[in-house]
């Protein structure tokens, strides 16, 4: 008989953590895929008029990072979820090719650093907003300064504008929405096996 060691520290990932985190990331991919058809209506005119404006909707792609971390509450959740989300985007066909993986890892890292800074103890609204902003900031930096970034050829001021937009968008769309979604999920009882099961009754700011 095979014996399995039962994990002791709560920072270790259980099977349920891994699978739920991965499916959150993938469901995020499905939602964006469905949303994409609608988003094109917004993003094409934005792009055609003043391209840095597209940063406004960038937050949508960073939801898995923040949402995953708010639900799983373990080190690496943001990084893992955003990477899996990027991988599923790659599988479905991405306009960024394999470089989407790098963007995913970096965006996840942006959020991860914030959660780490709070030592994985705080998962309130301000933390969520900051984590979203962190992901958005890293997204903007990646797009503007790394070779594969789509905005690498922009002028400096346009880059700055874009990065501000992605950061704000990350905070609002990825941060606030994920925080709301986590509270909503907690009230449905589906988070009963996670540390976030009481998210709905936790204080907003503390």
């Amino acid at each position: 008989m095979t014996t399995v060691n039962v994990k002791k520290t709560s920072y270790n990932w259980r099977v349920v953590d891994i699978v739920v985190a991965a499916l959150i990331a993938i469901a995020g991919g499905v939602i964006f895929w469905a949303w994409d058809q609608g988003a094109a209506i917004i993003s094409i005119p934005l792009d055609a008029t003043y391209p840095p404006l597209t940063g406004i909707i960038a937050g949508g792609w960073m939801i898995p990072a923040v949402l995953g971390a708010l639900i799983i509450r373990k080190p690496g959740a943001a990084l893992f979820c955003e990477t899996v989300a990027a991988a599923s985007e790659l599988i479905m066909g991405s306009q960024y090719g394999t470089t989407v993986l790098i963007s995913g890892v970096l965006q996840g890292l942006g959020a991860e650093l914030i959660f780490a800074a709070f030592r994985y103890k705080k998962f309130n609204l301000p933390t969520a907003l900051l984590a979203g902003a962190g992901a958005g900031l890293f997204c903007g930096l990646n797009d503007c300064f790394l070779p594969w970034g789509w905005n690498i050829a922009y002028e400096a001021l346009d880059k700055l504008t874009y990065i501000i937009f992605t950061t704000v968008s990350g905070a609002i769309i990825a941060g606030a929405l994920s925080w709301l979604a986590t509270r909503g999920l907690a009230t449905t009882g589906v988070l009963s096996s996670f540390a976030s099961r009481k998210a709905a009754s936790e204080p907003v700011f503390n």
Binding site: T2, V4, N5, V16, V19, A27, A181, L185, V190, S193
Partner: peptide, 27 residues
């Protein structure tokens, strides 16, 4: 999207039970 998320978490939790019951999760 919220409706889908609820189902995603439910399904994933059940899938995790299935995997664990098949001995998954060891080193």
């Amino acid at each position: 999207s919220f409706g889908l998320l609820v189902q995603a978490v439910r399904r994933a939790s059940r899938l995790a039970v299935t995997m664990e019951a098949r001995g998954f999760g060891g080193g």
